[in-house]
Simulated scan of single mutants.
Amino acid sequence: MRITTRRTTTHTPRRGAALTVAACAALVLTLTACGQEGGSGNGSGKAAAPPAADNKAKVCLVMKSLGNEYFQSMQKGAEQHAKELGTVDLTSVGIQNETDIDGQVAAIDKCITQKARALVIAPADSKALIAPIKRAASAGLKIVNIDVKLDDGGLKSAGLDVPFVGPDNTDGAKQSGTKLVEALGPGAKVVILEGNPGAANAEQRKAGFQAAVTEGKLTLLDSKTAHWETDEAYTVVSNMLTAHPDIQGVLASNDSMALGALKAIKAAGKDKRIKLASFDNIEAIAPFVQDGSVVATIDQFPSKQAGDGIDQALKLLSGQPVTGWIKTDIKVVTKAG
């Protein structure tokens, strides 16, 4: 098994591959060898590039920042899944930070140059990545979208039919936010830390938090982006605490930002008075869930999600139709379990 990876920075291994997946992968290789690969898929009018020299399906996984523990887990899960399949030549790559759209564009172009047969992508921006993805599809790559949904209008304009493998972010954020409502009670004053503007999951999580705030009759004082980043969240929340010294709760759209918020809250001497709800369930947030600082986070199983994306790419390569939303699991994580 040959796996090549490039990490821009330095959770659990995925379960064993199902026999149907292995059979699907075998079918990919058989059809390719006979020159009978299925339809173009993903809106492409060209045949897929030849397989890797060792007869394994060459798949590119393009993620967001590998400085984020969430995507480190995704990468490990994908590599483990590829190893278990034994029929995939996986290249996994991340970007420098959560807003490095140019880095993802360069990674996609490299996948095309290296004659990958499929691209599995967690886009940093739901609209800006459509043009390079269109280039990849036109070069014959099968495309699978994971984690952050690409913009439907942009896909339609580009003539692309790209399946999405990912969770219900709105529902997850609402469930997490509802736990904060239960902890604080009606009338409590809260703020929201948003993800990247332009990213569908950022908009969906904000909507889910807002729904919890409205239904729980909380008072929303402010809502600002920290671009998914810990350091930026520290600055944003520090400024919020100055402007609104009576904040009682923070709704953070990911755990990385929650960590920055916790640091700012502690620096202000308010760590015993302000509660958080978050999203992602990275290992670094676990101690704060256990001590009650974070009342809830959402596990969306990134390592399994990446493997599921690879499985769907193999189905496309075998000529099977894959379309629409393949919904993945979420779980509310609290101190109670």
Rank of each mutant, 00 (worst) to 15 (best):
P50M: 08
N281V: 09
C34R: 13
A258W: 04
A233W: 04
L29G: 03
V120Y: 05
K224F: 11
R117W: 06
I108R: 04
V322L: 11
A116V: 00
K127F: 01
V59A: 14
A207V: 06
P13E: 13
G67N: 13
G319M: 10
K224N: 14
T91N: 12
A49N: 15
E37P: 03
L155H: 05
Q305T: 13
T235G: 02
A139N: 10
N201S: 13
A336Q: 15
S253K: 02
Q114A: 15
T113V: 05
P186E: 08
Q248Y: 07
R205H: 03
E98Q: 14
V190T: 13
A22P: 00
A296Q: 11
A107D: 07
G260F: 08
G216E: 06
S138Y: 00
V28F: 11
L314Y: 13
T323Q: 14
P245Y: 04
D308E: 15
D109W: 00
G337A: 09
A202V: 12
E182P: 00
F279G: 07
G67L: 05
G86C: 08
L90E: 05
G86L: 08
A183E: 15
K76T: 14
L141C: 09
S238D: 09
V28N: 07
G324N: 09
A264G: 02
F71T: 03
I298D: 10
T30G: 04
T10A: 12
S253Y: 03
T230E: 13
P50V: 05
I133E: 01
D102P: 05
H81Y: 15
D89T: 04
A183T: 13
V148S: 15
A202P: 02
T214R: 12
S73A: 12
L251D: 02
V120F: 10
I3D: 06
K83C: 01
L66M: 14
T225Q: 00
T297F: 03
T9M: 06
L184S: 07
P123N: 05
T113P: 01
A22F: 09
Y70K: 03
A258F: 08
S238Q: 11
T87S: 12
N42Y: 05
A200W: 07
L155G: 01
V332E: 05
G67K: 14
L85E: 10
S303R: 02
A183Q: 14
V181H: 08
G103C: 07
D151L: 06
D102Y: 01
T219A: 08
R14K: 00
L29V: 15
V62G: 02
C60D: 11
K142G: 02
K127L: 14
V332F: 10
Q320T: 13
D308H: 06
A53P: 00
A336C: 00
A52S: 15
D102L: 13
A336V: 11
K266L: 01
L316N: 06
A17P: 00
G324K: 09
N42I: 04
V28I: 12
S126E: 09
E203Q: 15
I247F: 09
F164D: 04
E283D: 14
T87K: 11
G39K: 10
T9C: 09
L241H: 08
T12V: 12
E215H: 05
L262C: 07
K335V: 11
L276T: 01
V144S: 09
A48P: 09
V237M: 05
L184G: 11
A23Q: 11
P132D: 05
V88Y: 09
T242D: 09
L220K: 03
R7G: 12
A124S: 14
L31A: 06
P13D: 12
T225N: 01
L276Y: 01
V93T: 15
